[in-house]
Design a protein around this nucleic acid. Sequence first.
DNA 1: CCTGAGCGG
Length: 156
Amino acid sequence: MALRAAATRSMFAGLAPPGLRRFCSTASANSFMPPPIAAMGNGEGTPGREQAPPSTNLFVSGLNKRTPSEKLREAFSQFGRVVDARVVTDRVSGYSKGFGFVRYATIEEAEKGRVGMDGKFLDGWVIFAEYARPRPERTPPQNMSNSNGYNSYGRE
DNA sequence: CCTGAGCGG
């Protein structure tokens, strides 16, 4: 039955997430192999590539360019209370950059949502959820003109 | 239109 082969290809041609190529670079697309969970033999010699510490801010990457923030919040609200969910869009082009940020109410929910949505499918694309890096929202750590000393760090 | 590594206003 050659018809079945054609039908199978047609099915995969509709929702073939190109994001899967990150798992297997030179592997056959016909074989399902587990992701190479890195080589844990470096110990602590991976500076720059270290993930951010646990926080309520979640960095979601691998999103579809047409995925709205509502879809993100809806998908992540299944694991916890999403305080804020935003898909990063460009100011000049106005289109999504392919990643977004999801802020949970507590770190526990953020952890559950991160593990629960990391490696899941969204709009036919494999998304990756990890902790966002501590980044100042407005006031830079430089120039302390204010005697208050309040730092608007997105932590917690 | 949005082609895909990536940390936003």
